[in-house]
Nucleic acid binder design. Structure first.
Lengths: 194, 194
DNA sequence: CTCGAAAGAGCACGATCGGTCACTTATTGT
DNA sequence: ACAATAAGTGACCGATCGTGCTCTTTCGAG
């Protein structure tokens, strides 16, 4: 039961890459098996169905994101220092980690946003948790903490700048994308500070 | 030669819907033919290949967007009034026009952003033109016109809010998405005004 | 009205899709 | 070390993919 788990992770990591590049539907078991170095049926034995694998991919992608963006900042002080570090780390995620194949979470977002079901639910759950986390960081910028509505507005803008950065950088090839995003975000932090 | 053109438009409109929902690769000629009421080969005669059709879909989607967002505002005064109208119209595009199947342009953006070739080029071209148009509107907010770099920064934020709105509304089902986006955008306009 | 051309139907192709099954090989607990 | 079980293989299924081909229907210019 131990070797199987290692293989399963290898499959999911490769699947995450292919999903980021081609989307959930277009990522085929055949290509995936070849990339991992397994036969199609050998790979398939690790999952009950393709949808089960897709679900696992969604969880894995969010795990990777958390590992990359959240882990390095979780010892920083709450509020502005942590928010700045998260933002920069998120930019790195988009520009470096996802440079070759795209961001799996963004690919999933666009693909699943009009497709109800357990897959979308899993994605929404993870993103909602992450949103609550970031809102708490905004609230911690002030003493007493800012109102929930204001934190929600701040989160909306932060997330927007990150989406804007991704499009500008990845699709449009804008070399100033990172600078634009950071400038906008720092202005937001200034506005949010008491 | 006239009936063929009408059919071609019917095909492209339906194809645009399917591309918005499932993506370029996953939108199949079989389903498309059935939805339009043609045989697969009858439909195929209107295009040299699937890629040629995909290219036509990209052009058509941008045409639809321009028609919906730009046309109704082009008689308004330059600067703030027109920008406000564009933003609201764009929100309508996302919330109403694309409610059922998603925004084709956003689907194309995510799918093509790491896939060089004529398809991505066509998409980039259209979006760059639209960006220049919006930047000119920002510049027209001031006398003398604001610097190009500042207009670029303003455009970046505007586009970001629209992306944020789409994700909040469509994926997360946030009922406040429109309000959040409008509030952020109006604050941006205030900041941008001389 | 006629006739050539355009529009479309029907069929078939090789490839690939997700998925199953019987079988062999490798790993693990005892 | 040995039996039990997990991991992985290969052949195969029906369905569907994009794309040709030939044939029929429909249209529009003269």
């Amino acid at each position: 039961m131990r070797k199987g788990d290692a293989t399963r992770v290898r499959i999911l990591d490769e699947a995450t890459r292919q999903v980021a590049q081609r989307g959930l539907i277009a990522a085929s078991l055949g290509d995936l098996a070849e990339a991992v170095g397994l036969s199609k049926s050998g790979l398939f034995k690790h999952f009950e169905s393709k949808e089960a694998m897709q679900l696992a991919v969604i969880e894995r992608a969010q795990e990777q994101f958390t590992e990359y963006v959240w882990r390095p900042v979780q010892d920083l002080p709450h509020g502005r220092p942590r928010l700045q570090a998260i933002f920069d780390r998120w930019l790195d995620w988009t520009e470096t980690e996802c440079a070759a194949h795209g961001c799996p979470i963004m690919a999933l977002s666009v693909e699943l946003d009009d497709q109800p079901g357990p897959l979308r639910d899993a994605l929404q759950r993870g993103m909602e948790r992450w949103r609550r986390t970031l809102m708490r960081e905004f609230q911690a910028m002030r003493q007493p903490p800012m109102a929930e509505a204001e934190a929600a507005a701040a989160y909306f803008q932060m997330k927007s700048y990150l989406l804007g950065h991704s499009e500008a950088k990845r699709l449009m090839g804008d070399p100033d994308a990172r600078r634009s995003a950071r400038a906008a975000f720092h202005a937001l932090l200034d506005r949010s500070e008491g």
